[in-house]
Simulated scan of single mutants.
Amino acid sequence: MSLAKPVMRGLLGKRLRFHLPIAFGLSILAAAAFKYTVTEPRKQAYAEFYKQYDAVKEFNAMREAGVFESARPSGD
């Protein structure tokens, strides 16, 4: 008894027809999971932070602390 020869012609196309849709499906699933578990909560956190953020108040606090070299504190 001898083993049958493997069919090599068209093997790549046959494997791609099986694996390519799976790869696309998993990549879309991973992208959706990343979007809803990482980016959406991050965008929400930024929105919450900037609702009550006062840039002028923050600038004045940093200027008073001497962070900037070109902006003097208002006391000078």
Rank of each mutant, 00 (worst) to 15 (best):
residue 35 K to S: 14
residue 62 M to A: 13
residue 62 M to N: 08
residue 15 R to G: 01
residue 30 A to N: 06
residue 30 A to K: 12
residue 33 A to Y: 04
residue 48 E to Q: 15
residue 33 A to G: 04
residue 40 E to A: 15
residue 66 G to P: 01
residue 67 V to A: 12
residue 30 A to G: 12
residue 71 A to D: 06
residue 57 K to P: 00
residue 19 H to P: 00
residue 9 R to Y: 13
residue 10 G to K: 08
residue 49 F to G: 04
residue 62 M to K: 13
residue 11 L to W: 05
residue 28 I to A: 15
residue 33 A to F: 05
residue 72 R to L: 13
residue 13 G to T: 06
residue 45 A to Q: 13
residue 64 E to T: 10
residue 69 E to Y: 08
residue 4 A to F: 04
residue 17 R to V: 02
residue 23 A to N: 04
residue 29 L to W: 00
residue 24 F to C: 13
residue 17 R to F: 03
residue 39 T to W: 07
residue 2 S to C: 07
residue 10 G to Q: 06
residue 29 L to S: 09
residue 63 R to L: 02
residue 67 V to W: 02
residue 1 M to H: 06
residue 9 R to M: 15
residue 36 Y to P: 00
residue 33 A to S: 07
residue 66 G to V: 02
residue 23 A to W: 02
residue 32 A to T: 10
residue 66 G to S: 05
residue 19 H to Q: 07
residue 69 E to I: 11
residue 73 P to L: 05
residue 37 T to E: 02
residue 36 Y to W: 08
residue 31 A to M: 09
residue 64 E to G: 04
residue 7 V to W: 00
residue 10 G to S: 09
residue 12 L to Y: 12
residue 71 A to F: 14
residue 29 L to C: 09
residue 62 M to V: 00
residue 19 H to K: 07
residue 42 R to C: 06
residue 57 K to D: 13
residue 16 L to E: 12
residue 1 M to C: 08
residue 44 Q to C: 09
residue 44 Q to P: 00
residue 38 V to R: 02
residue 69 E to R: 14
residue 57 K to E: 14
residue 52 Q to K: 15
residue 42 R to V: 04
residue 12 L to T: 12
residue 52 Q to G: 15
residue 18 F to K: 15
residue 66 G to N: 02
residue 51 K to W: 01
residue 1 M to E: 04
residue 16 L to N: 13
residue 59 F to P: 01
residue 54 D to E: 07
residue 33 A to K: 04
residue 19 H to Y: 07
residue 11 L to P: 00
residue 14 K to T: 13
residue 41 P to M: 07
residue 64 E to C: 06
residue 64 E to V: 05
residue 6 P to W: 02
residue 50 Y to I: 05
residue 35 K to L: 15
residue 34 F to Y: 13
residue 41 P to A: 11
residue 53 Y to I: 03
residue 73 P to W: 02
residue 27 S to M: 12
residue 64 E to N: 10
residue 3 L to Q: 06
residue 68 F to G: 03
residue 39 T to F: 11
